[in-house]
Design a protein around this nucleic acid. Sequence first.
DNA 1: CTTTAACCCTGGAGGC
DNA 2: TGCCTCCAGGGTTAAA
Length: 275
Amino acid sequence: MPELPEVETTRRGLDAVISGHQLKAIRVHHHQFRWPVPANLNETLQGYTLQACLRRGKYLLLQFEHGVLIIHLGMSGSIRRVAPGEFLLKHDHVEFIFDNAEFRLNDPRRFGAVLWHPAKTGNIQSHTLLANLGIEPFDPQFTAAYLHQMLQNRQSAIKTVLLSGDIVVGVGNIYASESLFRARINPKTAAGSISLARCKRLHQAILQTLNAALESGGSTLKDYTGTNGEVGAYFEIHAAVYDKAGLPCKVCATPITKIIQGQRATYYCPKCQRY
DNA sequence: CTTTAACCCTGGAGGC
DNA sequence: TGCCTCCAGGGTTAAA
């Protein structure tokens, strides 16, 4: 369920508290995630100091001197800070015990992941899960021209292509619909047929949508470093079209339409987003 | 190469 | 109250 703004807020919350601190123990209570959690994680990591908490797409990267702990929150994952020794909640599957704070990964559906990537080869992003990801939306190299170029020869619907994450990462199912509404582009439009001028609108729309979510989320979670604060609680999302089927469009009052694309729900205004 | 669909899993909502 | 079906903000993987 977390989209990129939630993951980024989680990253900032973790980085502010535990970077530079020693990991005393990891306790894994459920090993079956998308892939099995490595059995000897505690032996691999205890006593090591977390150098930095990074992010690539929706993957959290906890960097240690001998490798990277890769964490993905999947559809239902969240990380929260707990008081030392606090009782376990249902679906608290992994405990991270640092010398100054404790965090827990809670994930009911277990679509997420916890993986260890040894840094023998140098590049921390050399893991196969990270190697083929699209560009970061806030990277200066993500431009309208780049977007336009990458859409060439893609016959699939623009919504599906945005969601695939091989052009730009971090645009999840909510913000794909929201970005296309803001850009006034029909989600069914063939990606390769979108002009450079319209790609400029879409590029701006993606950045504005993600930035707005980050700002509202950051203010919602301003206490995220406090002792009982959430690190990555889900934001209250201010959507214009997502989950608004049948409700009037904010711009023209036409009822919002819901369709299914690639087995995922898409919402749009059939009048504002005609092409 | 691009595109499509199955699949991993739990829980909440709504119909009956 | 229970049972059933559908749906969920992700993304890898195999197959076409």
